[in-house]
Amino acid sequence: MNNWPYSGTVKDHFFHPRNFLQGDESDFAADGVGEVGSPACGDVMKMWIKVRDGKIIDLKWKTFGCASAIGSTSMLSEMVLKNGGMKIETALKITPADILKKLGGLPQNKIHCSVLGDKALRAAVENYLEKKGEPKKKPSKIICECLGVSERELDLSVAAGERTFAEFQRKTKAGTGCEKCVAKINKLLAKKIDKYSDKACCSFCKKDCLGKTSRTND
């Protein structure tokens, strides 16, 4: 079929999704459960994991989502479960970009749908660690619920010299879901830029230097 908007791999995973949860949730007896997104955004992803000796040995998912969400999560589940399962730390290193590569790409406007599986996996791991009572890193506040983008990501963006919402969005896809967070993030961004600008960023200035001079060598 030539008139298909997605790659052959996406199509295969869309028509034959791997590892989605069949039957009752309680029968699976998961060690960790994560859910991201909301019906308002048109995307919900739920993920269940089983962990043995720090390894994810089984993983199931369900989604209220489009072909991108289905295809990319199905692919993610295969990547994690390959060769008997992945170590948690390794699994958490999988990025949306890795999944995209395996899928043979996605149309530009569909990329935001593909990050859901990845976010749900992180949520499931956090839930597992929490249940286990392991000291987990204090989670950063989520500023975009739909895409699960945290405030820390915004901090990193500002620290990297980015000054516009558009730049931040390009990187994180924040605000591309229900868009309710956009105004709030913009405000927060302005605050953070302000805060950043208070500190002298180089030996010549105290204020308003950012954006005018290159900070990369300071």
């Binding site: 908007p5 869309f14 028509f15 048109g42 995307d43 209220f64 489009c66 072909a67 969400a69 289905i70």
Partner: peptide, 14 residues
Amino acid sequence: FGIEGESILLRLDF
């Protein structure tokens, strides 16, 4: 209820 339009469309197209 509970499913996404694009997924339905692509399956119909098939």
